[in-house]
Computed example of a mutant assay.
Amino acid sequence: MTPTLATRSTDLDRLEALSFQRYRQTQQIGSVWNETVDTLLAHRSVRSYLPTPVPQGAVELAVAAAQSAASSSNLQAWSVVVVEDKDRKNRLNAVAGQQRQIAEAPLFLVWLADLARPRAIATQGGSASEGLDYTESFLLGVIDAALAAQSAVVALEALGLGTCYIGAIRNDPETVARELGLPEGVFPVFGLTVGFPDPARPADVKPRLPQSTILHRERYSDETRRKDLAHYNEVLRRFQAEQAMPSIDWTDQVRNRIGTVEALKGRHVLAAVARRLGFALR
């Protein structure tokens, strides 16, 4: 749908409501609204699902959206594995720490950085494929997978489905690789739960940092950072109270998440694991 000025009062009201949901304060985000903008701004991580199966064709549509995302040099260095088998999903959930959303979601997608395919193409054509042995190529695959997955998320949410990214499969990528039969040169980047949200346990839009913190013009500036972070701590604490979540300042959450090696939950060895999975990372 082509973006249009939200000249109707109902559209303007909806845009303001979406903006306030996302920031919990007045934030000017222009006056362009359509259903795509609505889907993007209303995104929330869904962790409670109905047992209803995902409609036939939804995966194929999501993959078409994923393949419509940008791809570096059109290498398309990603793949995705669809997991519906309950036992396999349970085994993957053990890697992720037994998360409720994985257990409940009828569909689990594992997004992959896939350098096995370009390597095979090079080998079959008699090329050395030396470029795949560098960190740049690993990053290329990870970025391509992330861009693809986010486009798929937008498509799935436009169908009324909910999603939640699962980075915890990187707690043990080698176990994930064995479970999914991944060849050398393929790395599991993250999972994605998919299903119909349970209306009895609704998820709300989590507030984000004000744009003054992350939007820079011409040159980077952190002049408002201290004030913005103090305000955001207050905003997020109100959100946590509304959602019956544990109360913690966002700044403390950041410090806890990056403060120790233990907080990485085994992911401090990812470079070594990636090498064992076939990435030289020179």
Rank of each mutant, 00 (worst) to 15 (best):
V235C: 10
A116V: 06
P183R: 01
Q240T: 09
K227R: 15
T52Y: 01
R44M: 11
A66Y: 11
H268Y: 13
D198C: 06
L147A: 13
A146D: 08
E157Y: 09
R88I: 14
L159I: 06
A152F: 06
G97N: 10
R217P: 00
S48E: 12
Q150A: 05
A128Y: 03
R91F: 03
A158K: 02
P106I: 10
P188T: 08
V59G: 04
S79V: 06
R170A: 12
S48Q: 11
T260L: 09
Y232Q: 02
Q56I: 13
T260F: 07
P51N: 05
S31A: 15
A230D: 11
I214M: 13
R100C: 07
K89I: 07
S247G: 13
A58H: 07
G266F: 10
S73E: 05
L41Q: 10
A96E: 07
T163P: 03
G30W: 11
T123D: 12
L140K: 01
W33N: 06
K265L: 14
P199R: 04
A274N: 03
E223C: 00
K227F: 14
R170Q: 13
K265C: 11
D204N: 11
L236E: 05
A280L: 10
G126D: 09
T193N: 08
A122V: 04
L109D: 04
S151A: 14
K206G: 07
E179N: 03
Q243L: 15
G30T: 09
E179V: 12
D252W: 05
E179M: 08
I214G: 00
L41W: 14
D222F: 08
F187A: 05
H43T: 10
A280I: 09
E157Q: 14
T213Y: 06
R14S: 14
E242Q: 15
N34C: 14
A271P: 00
F138K: 11
F279Q: 01
V261E: 12
S151Y: 08
G278N: 08
R225P: 04
T135Y: 13
S9V: 11
V254S: 03
L50G: 01
T26V: 13
E16G: 07
G259N: 07
I166W: 02
V194S: 05
L61M: 15
I248N: 04
R237C: 14
L115A: 09
A62R: 04
V81P: 01
V83P: 01
A116T: 03
T224W: 00
S137N: 04
R219H: 12
R100D: 06
S68T: 11
Q124N: 13
